[in-house]
Structures are given as structure tokens and as C-alpha cells.
Design a protein around this nucleic acid. Sequence first.
DNA 1: TGCCAGGCCCTCTTTAGGGCCTT
Length: 208
Amino acid sequence: MKKQSANTVIVLDFETTGLSPNMGDRAIEIGAVKIENGQVVDQFQQLMNPGFRVSSFIEGYTGISNYMLADAQPCDVVMNDFADFIQGYNLIAHNASFDQRFLDAELQRIGRRYNGEFACSMLIARRLYQHASNHKLGTLVNTLDIENDGTFHRALADAEMTARLWLRMLEDIQHQYRTPSLTFDAMHKLSKTSKATVPTYLRKLALS
DNA sequence: TGCCAGGCCCTCTTTAGGGCCTT
């Protein structure tokens, strides 16, 4: 097993058949990038066949068709590979509670586990960019002028944009509060800090 | 055809309700 690295994180995004694994929804695509010391050093992207047809809403929303999924490997195979990819690293997603539910559900089906912490870029963005009209990934990417190729709602594209958002937030904190580059643990803690005490928390980090 | 969940967070709050965000 790889040793957990404080400077290496995995940013991931699932496309799914719906909103709730408890209601029978499954993953249909996983995309992820590995960030090491502020640079993307690896990526993972796979479609997966959930074993039933996806709705026309999901086909339209994601651009992933039943035709594309017909040739994809089953979820169990893809998720087994993905469990290897994430092993030993901390994880990040935009609205992480959603992706964590699907990750937990898919890994439970195949008896695999992961050993990292999960942090949410949306909770941090809500604290840092309170002026933004909303905190959807696409809105933040446009508001902050983050590089993108116009692809949204595909797993790897969304994971890449979330990774750029994460790095941008690290930069903005560093510049605005004159802190050293925050560790994953410090960012994770920030995501759970009440909005009112965020400036106090960051100023304390700048002095430490 | 149209609906489903759940954690966070604000407020007209905490013995609650509803918007935001993810697909």
C-alpha cells in the first residue's frame, strides 16, 4: 500500500444515473486527477455500465448515452481499478457529500475501502467567495476566470475544473491572508469553520 | 410522466423550514 502523502490529493467527480444510491442509482462515469505539489501528475477516466438503461434526462444532462455505456466495463471492474488509484490519498470533490455517497456505495458493493479524508471545494468556495452569485462549479469557473474547454457534466472535465478551483483557492488564501500554502488538513478544517470565524482562522494560520 | 436524497447553512431558528448543490 502506498504511504499517505500530505502533498498529494485526488480530485474526483462522478456522473451517475440520479441523485441517490439509496434509491438504486449507480455511477456511470468516474473522472479524477492526481495533484502533487500543485501540479496535475496523473488522471483516471472511465465510463461504466450500471446494468440498466439510463434516463433520457441523464443522457441529455451528461452527454453519456446508453449506446456509449453498452460497450463500457461494468461498475465493479472500473471501481476496483479506481480503488487502487485512490488508495493512500486524500480526496476532494465539488459538493463532496454527493460523490462520497456514490464512492462509498460502489466500493461497498465490491468489498473495497479507501483510507483518505474527503474535503469539499464547494464548502470552501462558499466561505471564500461570498460575493459569487452562486457556488455551482460552472459559475465559479466563469466568475474566477478559471481555464476550461467548455465541457461540463463529464467526469474528467469537472474533476479538472474542480482541481483548478482548489489550486486557485489555495493561491487566493495565500495572497489575501499572507499564509503559507495551506495543507489539505488545514483546507479540510476551513470547510468546517463557521463563515464568521473564517478570517480569524486564516489570520491565525498566517501567524503560525 | 414525474417523482425520488441528504448534508450544509441561513433565518421569519434551535420542539423548523427551506434554499443550495450534486446527477
